[in-house]
Nucleic acid binder design. Structure first.
Lengths: 192, 192
DNA sequence: GTCTATAGCGCGATAGAC
DNA sequence: GTCTATCGCGCTATAGAC
């Protein structure tokens, strides 16, 4: 197998495991079984678990933020962009074998068990998302696509917390259907 | 040491560890060091880890819901009750050594690694909180203490998701101060 | 680049003395 | 009720053959 294909397969497997079970329940053994190579071979590509986590977060952040940037630079009105943005989280939930939370949401719970480099990448993901949401809300409010009391930065943090929390909680009960209904409720709140 | 004192000390230590690090990073070894007894002695009180988790959740749910019930049955107006309810989560964050999330919020991330009895107790906590929030919002809307578009049940789920999410995320950056500011933003949204 | 084999540790759990 | 001692397993990680 070409080196990058194996690397990708390992990262895919690790990401799936973490999004369902968390980083502390993810192991080289699990990955090795799902990828079809031996534990020792994983160490060739990613010497330590901390190293694997860092690479995974780099890929995840880059991919996710790229999608957000494309979405937010489209010509849609701001309210529609927000709905689509929340749809990204909904899509995560339905990805593959189902019941996946956001990678960085899961790692937020386990934040104090991570190495400093991985923890920084989790923080980066939060900050970048809130930044982009803040300007979306700002622009939309100016144009009249949103109508809300309070300030855009605080509302951005609120919406992002809500999305990360909802993704975790609907896995316990309600699933995608419940996520959709609270998503719509969120839209109601920012348009009144 | 009297049996119940030791039991309590073990539960306290386990709860602290889980609220900071998660259930999969909590171990009998850590507890034994913090309580000052040997690992084997913990097994006398709680034969298995699953058993310990169930007892801990039973205590946590009972305590928390009792406080909520007292709070919601007071004579305060509904908006003040909501603010105080959100204050319970804020207090968790500042409890003891700091940076603690809600016990059931942490376990939500690790839900699929828990035994079925513990997972059911986590679900119970979510459902009971949303139930109580739903009727608070309903009552407050009727009396004019709240003004929001949409329906009370969905908004209750939204607020609860937000609180659990925010508690996890502000540990990465912002802490209590950030929690307070998004809490106020939430109040703004339900009163307009 | 992947393999076998193994080191070394921390984990949950048990047996039996006191 | 707490102790010492120990078991067996899964973990991350390394050495060295192919």
């Amino acid at each position: 197998m070409a080196i990058n294909d194996t690397k990708t397969a390992i990262l895919d497997s690790a990401q799936d495991l973490i999004q369902r079970l968390g980083a502390n329940a993810m192991s080289y053994d699990h990955i090795s079984k799902s990828v079809g190579i031996r534990k020792a071979s994983i160490h060739y590509h990613f010497p330590t678990k901390e190293n694997l986590l860092e690479s995974l977060l780099e890929r995840y952040n880059e991919n996710f933020l790229k999608i957000v940037d494309d979405l937010f630079s489209s010509s849609d009105p701001e309210d529609k962009k927000l709905l689509k943005y929340m749809g990204l989280f909904e899509a995560t939930l339905q990805d593959g074998d189902h019941d996946k939370a956001c990678l960085c949401g899961m790692l937020g719970a386990e934040l104090f068990t991570l190495g400093p480099a991985a923890a920084d990448r989790v923080r980066y993901f939060y900050n970048e998302n809130e930044k982009r949401l803040t300007s979306l809300l700002d622009n939309g409010k100016k144009k009249g696509n949103f109508k809300f009391k309070g300030n855009s930065k605080k509302l951005a943090a609120l919406i992002f917390s809500f999305l990360e929390g909802a993704l975790l909680l609907v896995r316990a009960e309600g699933g995608v259907k419940k996520f959709q209904s609270v998503k719509e409720q969120m839209m109601d709140l920012v348009k009144s």
